[in-house]
Design a protein around this nucleic acid. Structure first.
Lengths: 316, 316
DNA sequence: GGAAAACTTGCTCACATGAGCAGAGCCGCA
DNA sequence: TGCGGCTCTGCTCATGTGAGCAAGTTTTCC
């Protein structure tokens, strides 16, 4: 049988929150003093019977953000509401918009911003307001899309962010992954590439997303890897990729040989960065997000509610 | 683009409802006066961005109850929350419990209570507390289960309610539907049956449920009708049955011949009753509930949130 | 361009509410 | 039975909050 006080507190809550009665009026109805009513309401709240939710595409979940800050190594977190969202695309859009907002409010404004590329980053670029900053040098930190897709996606992202920041973009003129280590080393040592890589290593802040490890990965899409190769990586423990490098649940490189052929910033450099903003949302990216956060690959995580709970290890 | 004030009001709501900050503190954070913050919060509420829900099996939806009272002919309504409920059975249990509570609180306490039978009514009987009233004569108002199922369900319901009310039960010793009109007339005029019917006609209050019109109907289950017969009734427009009589969406008898062979209170008598409590819940019963309410077959409806919205014509 | 209308802003004031506290009632234990 | 500790109750008081108002600001329309 349910406790009498519990039932009373529910009746009180109904009158308070649905009928907008004052605690005094409720007291009159239920034959209680107004103080008792106040206590019942507090009890109902404490028991979790009262659920207050902010439903809006731009709503954030501050409570979850705080939990992330407290229970992980993150220095900051942005968690967008997943209320009323059915698709992963929608979640990613919300997170991207939130990342744009975060970037706009970021102080100090980074002189140099290192960015990766991909669908999510592109959306972040779209979400930024023209003039969001006054002069930021945007640098690509990993090799770009260029094999068999529309050439310009990666470049366009960097350029858009830079233009809207009234700054300049520095592109990394190189593929993401090369077939032979020798080629990679050669390209890397080329002055045009080396300069950009050095600039990227010294960026004041980083902004990047992550990809899940499956056949829908952007690296497969761009033709750098085949679905079979990714499947093999998964077999070796890969949960996803970050700046073109596949990691396992511990945040370690899965395939050293492949990694040696990948051009771009190294994970250690990212780990040392004072500001590394990861934008990762959608149900397919829970595992990567968790790996990235727990291994300290980012200092700030922009994500959705469900992914945040997964990172906290509270998957329902 | 989203209105600036709208975004601000969302930020304010986050700080107010999730972080429990005062409007003054929020003003300090967002660089606004506390009055502006108050207005933003009011705006957020008015726009429906703030959703407060009471999650508890015994929670009621007073707002929907009021809408029912205002927009239908009902004199009262009880609407239980459907939050976190997956099955129709659970919804029916909640409604049955709520009906038991309603009956307990009903004033004046009915001297004679006319009841139907069925799964729902049985649950209402279970949900009543022993001693919920002091002396109520419980009368069956329609023919009982008796053909091929456990004999006692209908009787047990009446007896349980009466016992718990420290009162007496008067059973209707008759089947629900007879095969020939002549038999029905004969039984009806038998003193033992006629007395009970008269008592039922003069009850101070009625409590009944309704059945959906499909092969799962209690009348099919009890062997009074075949699945085919019900299908035929549906073809003629039947949406469900109430005290053994099939009605269409307008609340009219679907098959006059069948109705002539049905024993129990007539719908006109129910329509004239000052207190007729219908307990109807579950997604399969939306249509019957609507028919019953709109044709004035009950004065009080005990139901679940979703059914209530269907009755109000707000199915999403 | 200027007046009227509509809206927004910062305020006063009254009311609603939560924190904190003293006393009442209840329980267990000697 | 009597004593100390426990919870629960009703209160005072300080604070948080919404209604209403006048002044300032923007918009609209001639």
């Amino acid at each position: 049988m349910i406790d009498t006080d519990e039932l009373l507190s529910i009746r009180a809550a109904e009158l308070y929150y649905e009928e907008n009665k004052t605690q005094d009026e409720i007291g009159a109805v239920l034959r209680l003093t107004r103080w008792k009513v106040g206590r019942l309401l507090a009890q109902a709240k404490a028991s979790g019977f009262i659920r207050i939710e902010i439903v809006h595409p731009r709503a954030r979940r501050l409570i979850v953000e705080r939990r992330l800050r407290e229970h992980t190594g993150l220095s900051d977190a942005v968690v967008v509401s997943a209320a009323g969202v059915s698709t992963d695309e929608e979640l990613q859009s919300r997170a991207a918009q939130a990342a744009a907002d975060y970037l706009t409010a970021l102080r100090p404004v980074p002189a140099t911003l290192g960015i990766s590329w991909g669908r999510t980053l592109h959306e972040v670029a779209q979400g930024l307001k023209p003039g969001w900053a006054r002069g930021v040098n945007v640098v690509q930190i990993n090799g770009g899309v260029s094999l068999n897709r529309r050439e310009g996606t990666a470049a366009a992202t960097a350029v858009t962010i830079a233009q809207k920041a009234l700054g300049s973009a520095t592109l990394l003129p190189s593929p993401a992954i090369l077939e032979r280590v020798e080629t990679k080393l050669a390209i890397e040592s080329d002055r045009a590439v080396a300069t950009v890589l050095d600039l990227g290593s010294a960026a004041s802040a980083y902004l990047f997303s992550a990809g899940q490890a499956d056949e829908n990965s952007a690296l497969v899409d761009s033709g750098y890897l085949t679905a079979d190769q990714v499947a093999e990586l998964v077999r070796k423990g890969a949960v996803g990729d970050i700046v073109g490098r596949y990691i396992n649940a511990d945040g370690h490189i899965v395939d050293l040989e492949l990694d040696e052929r990948t051009i771009g910033i190294r994970l250690e450099q990212l780990r040392r960065a004072p500001t590394a903003i990861a934008v990762i949302a959608g149900s397919t990216k829970h595992a990567v997000a968790r790996a990235i956060v727990s291994s300290g690959l980012c200092t700030v995580l922009v994500t959705d509610e469900d992914t945040a709970l997964a990172v906290l290890g509270e998957t329902h």
